[in-house]
Amino acid sequence: MNVLKVSALTLGVFVLPALIIYICIVFIPIVVSFYTGMLDWNGIGEAKFVGFDNFHNLLFHDKVFWPAVRRTLLYAVASMIEIPFCLMMAVLLNRYVRKGNTLVSIYFTPVILSVVIIGQLWKTIYNPASLGGMLNQALTTFGLDSWTHTWLSEPKIAIYCIFFVSLWQYFGYHLLIQFTGVQNIPSEIYEAAKIDGADGFKADRYITFPLIVPIFKISIVLAFIGSLQSFDMIWIMTGGGPGNATDVLATYMYKTSFNSQQFGYGSAIASFLVILCLVFTVAINTVMNRVDKKFS
């Protein structure tokens, strides 16, 4: 095992600090949270141990839970679908734009803005025309009155409006990652391929994509896990409302823990989220490794 040929002491010095911190701030809280999930506890007084009751109610009797799971996964999938577009954009920028960096920096701007600012900004864009909503006013100006909506207050569309903002915000982030990846591919390969007759789309299919798969994978995992934990944007724009129409797992967990003061139940939701994250991380890695092998 010891391929690096270093002493156990050196290994310990380098690995232990990070390991201990990791265990303390990640692993132990997860275990504690699983345990709390088995309590009937308001967070303040005495806790009662109820075994798997919370999990049972959550999975079989909770009317809010499964729709929230569905929205969470929908969002995760939507943000994964965004990545190929980022890659395409990166390829185009790299090929046709002389100073691609400037454009990429501009696309990146929303990422450095705080979610609170973005949320408030888009809230005013989505507002009804009577309150100065830009989107509705624009639609009215173009004579599309029938297309106007109270975007964030209609249960059927509110969640998609929020997703759109999140996707818009993180487009630049993934574009930057992909763009850097594309730029790192040596131009000699393309030149050689050109001589062999592979140009344009063909070059992308057989050169760019196989070489960028590892970077692509990072983006996919980041996008997926990031969206499973999405909370802030939704909290700012609708607070999970109207009703529970825009609740995702994280907001629902927060509401049950802190608003309903059912910390045990909230922890059960948190535990579910942990498992969901783990399962999907493993799944994505497996799929991606296959893709990796196929192309290289």
Partner: peptide, 26 residues
């Protein structure tokens, strides 16, 4: 190593952050 640990926790384990609020230890 400290900064790496920080990265690890924020990237792939949302659950630490989200469950932290509801667990007594945090």
């Amino acid at each position: 190593s400290l900064s790496l640990a920080a990265c690890g926790s924020s990237n792939n384990n949302d659950n630490s952050g989200s469950s932290a609020g509801s667990s007594p230890s945090s």
